[in-house]
Design a binder for these strands. Structure first.
Lengths: 209, 209
DNA sequence: GTCGTATATATGACATGTCCTATATTCGGT
DNA sequence: ACCGAATATAGGACATGTCATATATACGAC
């Protein structure tokens, strides 16, 4: 139910079409927020029915018309209210952890395969973060050159902080996840994937809390 | 769609009622898998229609009858096939990161409040993990005394590895998440929550990959 | 004595999200 | 010449999950 707010947030930057928003999601918040194309168009329609956004039709010569949505003052108020509202408890559902919970049925080979597949996925994700960082820096350098005055530069740099915060989260949690997977893999190879060894490791972490 | 397998996995230990399964979820896998009560009963009915589980009615004197479900060989086969199947890409949706993505609209006070609320939540979660660890060790000590033979002990200890693995994941990722939040809070207090500082920090992490 | 909680299962209504498809045009590849 | 991808919006069908509520009984708290 936060898709509404994700869209409203994007529209505070500038007016976008549904298609733009879908691309924006895929390129900037994909690692913590994904959105289906159909859901975006339907949510835009809902938001417009509530007068939180409005659209104007923009005709194009070769492409289909775009519906360019912009946020209304009521929409801004709605977004700001959500931003400071207490976060609802997040429902986590991680199929991989579910599989590992039943490790005793998985067998050594199965476990090995699952861990390797997951390690590849994390490595790919971390590599992607590196790419995103590169493109942010590239864009930033261009913008800092291009922007007309100090105020515009300030605004741009402030708008950059949020994306950088979430990217840091992705990198740090990704690294922690990768290290955890590597630890499991190593334990399995050394034959120390036993209850006693795991309990000892857990104590090393928990006692330090 | 993995609720099916979560239930099948539980039923490999011993027969359970829907009510038992709900309690089992809430007490052991809540931090990475939550399930609605209605969903559990409906899924059990679906699984039975597919002959992956069967039930027998157990009459009770004071309480309502229980429907005690047990897994069938076909159910075991289905579970084992899922365990080794490649994991579907996980869809992440984290409202907190979405809020932080729009930090520029949140303001210093709003950000501070959001970070504090989240830090409390993580601390509570980590404390809960500590409690879970304690109760696992308590149960384990009792079981190791009580179990009749070495085979039973072995089986029990092997079944413990999965839960311990997922608990380790919770603790390590929880600690990483808490450290990230603390870093943000500190940066905000020191006035270093800027694009340049964040970029520098990101490089420290990314360049080491 | 009444209220809430635990045990135990189940359904209706609803919210949310995903998949597939339709429409229409242009551009690039094989 | 045809096929797929990109641009752009949208709806039907379906999957999945959640909320509230119903039923029935017993036990402890206030």
């Amino acid at each position: 139910m936060s898709l509404r707010y994700a869209i409203l947030g994007f529209l505070t930057h500038q007016p976008y079409s549904g298609y733009d928003i879908k691309r924006g999601f895929d390129s900037s918040v994909r690692h913590f927020w994904s959105a289906d194309q159909a859901a975006i168009y339907r949510t835009l329609a809902d938001l417009e029915a509530e007068q939180l956004v409005e659209h104007e039709r923009v005709a194009q010569q070769t492409r289909p018309d775009r519906k360019l949505y912009h946020i209304t003052p009521a929409g801004v108020a709605e977004l700001d209210a959500w931003l400071v509202s207490p976060a609802a408890a997040v429902v986590r559902r991680e199929p991989l952890l579910l599989k590992l919970f039943f490790t005793h049925r998985l067998g050594a080979q199965g476990l090995s395969a699952v861990l390797d597949a997951e390690l590849s996925a994390v490595d790919a994700e971390l590599a992607e973060f590196k790419t995103i960082l590169g493109s942010i820096e590239h864009d930033r350098a261009a913008m800092l050159q291009q922007l007309p005055n100090a105020d515009a530069v300030d605004g741009y740099r402030q708008a950059l902080v949020g994306p950088l915060i979430t990217l840091t989260n992705g990198v740090r949690l990704g690294v922690a996840y990768r290290d955890w997977l590597r630890g499991l893999k190593q334990a399995q190879e050394q034959g120390t994937l036993t209850d006693t060894a795991m309990l000892a490791e857990l104590h090393r972490y928990c006692d330090a809390l």
